[in-house]
Nucleic acid binder design. Structure first.
Length: 570
RNA sequence: GCUCCUGUAGUUCAAUGGAUAGAACUGCGGACUUCUAAGCCGUUAAUGUAGGUUCGAUUCCUACCGGGAGCACCA
């Protein structure tokens, strides 16, 4: 509807011979100001040499000539806003459409025919999957789903650092662990909990030794080279074991989070290739101190100099990332490549994109970097089995336990409870991440951020479950938005805003618009629910059920876009 | 020191340059013994400071103050 109104307004402006680049159609904050409003008369009054109200009146006159039947009234208000009021008939039919579209309600085709690759999560094998990765995953998965809902062919990618100093530290650590002997006779089993703990400890041990013990440091540097060259049998064996344990473990987390990657990229593949790209472009990359090869960023543009190949001759993350861009493109000829990372890497990514614009100008243009904020912990007492890092797994487990206690023991069977508790936990965690604009840090307070009430994921899940319960109770009763009813209420109108919200979330690549909208919708629904008896056998019962049905579908589709599970009962 | 991000109720977050800055948590006060109380209704409370641009600024610009991140071989 927004688009249709925009066209109408643009045509009226054109008739009056007014140049207008931007035409904004918005929802007025106040319902008495109509269903849609535009401020064009205020924006272009000066150009038209009229007062805003005069211009608005002229525009209204123009639009009245060609008024679509959905629009019931147009009026000039306040300083010169033009308010549109839509007919009840339009609202009824739109609600009907919403229900008919089912799972595709709210989707659009703005990216139809486009190929988009989204890279996110990016945990490092041999290290913890911590809450930072959880954040990247939540944001990335939601953005990917919004892009899919906008019609693009989408690939999900995960890029993992399976080589580098952190890996060398882990391998060194493994050599010290008692497990070492058994590793000469490695089991075929993928992994068990014990193995992941061993791996976590190995890294911590290696990292500490690297700082404190110069002999160990030298050994670790040697191991790092051996990992790249794959020349040492023991290193290869420990490396292979640890890598597999990690990757299998990550899969169990992706499953909980609702992510299925289409492809995995590894630093072990991008390293040599990236290095070659740098060496092949001596005009772009120059020699720096100590034999390193660097890219000199233009400081007047706020860019700094970064090392691409270090003095040991090994490629750094920057060079690898350059290789990755090309490898990704060879795998999937994308129109857009989105990379999601934490915001601490923003400055470096700007330099990287600048370098890429010289090496692969076409790829650089297609690459978009989106950063999310950091998850900050209050000096809290969250349980973590592994030390000061909070793992995703332990956080989910803690929240799940809390959710478990809230479940009504009689409503669900035992095995169902376990599933629902986990869904609620995932919902609470994801919502706390997606409710705010990405890029900003989140103060992660276990008690407050992970509330199950009010502005929370479980509130949305609860409302959805409630609609299903009501619909189940209605049995086979008629559901019909076109049944005669009194006016068009706020809930009805709120439901119909959903497609516009998805459009905006896609345009700005901001899932939080959807989160905010779903809360508004739920509040509207729960308010309605509190004041209305739906199943009263009255003549407008089919209409009321249609409102419930449409709310239910909108919540489900919206939660899907956030990758938050929708339990049927809770 | 330089660069970037950021500052909104007591707290955690919203708000496309627009009309009366919106929620939630907390506090206080209610309703309901009919569809899920993780719910509903009411109530107190906010744009860091000083300028500027604009018909109009939480939003854009400048300065200052506070918070965070980054600044050569980690990612």
């Amino acid at each position: 509807m927004q688009e249709k109104l925009e066209i109408l307004v643009r045509e009226a402006l054109a008739v009056l011979d007014i140049q207008a680049d931007e035409v904004l159609i918005e929802y007025p904050a106040d319902a008495t100001h109509g269903d849609y409003a535009t401020n064009v008369a205020l924006m272009y009054a000066k150009a038209a040499v009229l007062t805003p109200r005069e211009l608005a009146a002229n525009l209204v006159n123009e639009m009245m000539r060609v008024l679509p039947e959905e629009i019931e009234a147009i009026e000039v208000a306040g300083p010169g806003f033009i308010n549109f009021r839509l007919s009840d008939k339009y609202f009824s039919q739109a609600l009907n459409t919403a229900i008919e579209k089912k799972g595709s309600w709210g989707h659009n085709e703005t990216l139809k025919g486009k190929k988009v690759i989204v890279e996110y999560t990016d945990p490092n094998p041999f290290k913890e999957f911590h809450i930072g990765h959880l954040m990247s995953n939540a944001v990335g998965e939601s953005i990917a789903r919004i892009i899919v809902a906008s019609g693009a062919d989408t690939k999900r990618a995960c890029y993992q650092g399976d080589v580098g100093m952190h890996v060398a530290k882990s391998v060194w650590g493994l050599m010290q662990v008692e497990k070492y002997r058994e590793l000469n006779n490695l089991p075929e089993e993928p992994f068990d909990d014990f193995d992941t703990v061993v791996l976590g400890k190995a890294y911590a041990r290696g990292a500490q030794a690297y700082e404190a013990d110069s002999a160990a440091k030298a050994e670790i540097i040697e191991i790092n080279k051996k990992i790249y060259k794959q020349t040492d049998a023991l290193v290869n064996k420990l490396y292979g074991w640890g890598r597999k344990i990690s990757l299998d473990y990550f899969e169990t987390i992706y499953k909980k989070l609702g992510t299925t990657f289409d492809e995995y990229f590894f630093e072990s593949e991008t390293a040599e290739f990236g290095k070659k790209i740098v060496l092949d472009n001596p005009a772009i990359f120059e020699k720096g101190e100590g034999g390193a090869i660097v890219y000199k960023g233009d400081e007047s543009k706020g860019l700094h100099t970064r090392v691409f190949i270090n003095s040991e001759g090994l490629p750094t993350y920057e060079a690898k990332e350059l290789g990755l861009a090309k490898i990704k493109y060879d795998w999937y000829q994308y129109d857009t490549s989105i990379v999601i990372t934490g915001n601490e890497v923003n400055a470096y990514f700007r330099v990287l994109l600048d370098a890429m614009s010289k090496v692969f100008p076409d790829l650089a243009k297609k690459t978009i970097h989106i950063s999310h904020g950091m998850l900050r912990l209050p000096t809290g007492k969250m349980s973590s089995r592994t030390g000061d890092v909070i793992t995703a797994e332990s956080l989910i487990a803690d929240v799940k336990e809390k959710a478990f206690e809230k479940i009504d023991s009689e409503a669900l069977r035992e095995e169902e409870k376990n599933i629902v508790a986990e869904q609620v936990a995932i919902g609470a965690i994801k919502y706390s991440i997606l409710r705010q604009a990405s890029g900003k840090d989140i103060i992660f307070d276990f008690e407050q951020s992970l509330s199950f009430e009010g502005d929370s994921g479980p509130y949305l899940q609860y409302t959805h479950a409630r609609t299903l319960s009501l619909l189940a109770k209605a049995g086979g009763k008629s559901i019909d938005p076109l049944t005669a009813h009194e006016g068009t209420n706020a809930l009805h109108k709120k439901i119909l805003q959903f497609p516009d919200v998805v459009l905006r979330a896609n345009k700005e690549r901001e899932p939080h618009y959807i989160a905010t909208y779903l809360i508004e919708l739920s509040r509207e629904f729960n308010g309605y629910y509190g004041n209305t008896i739906v199943l009263d056998g009255s003549s407008d019962e089919p209409y009321k059920l249609a409102l419930v049905k449409a709310t239910s579908q909108t919540l489900k589709n919206g939660l899907n876009l956030l990758a938050i599970p929708t339990p049927e009962r809770m």
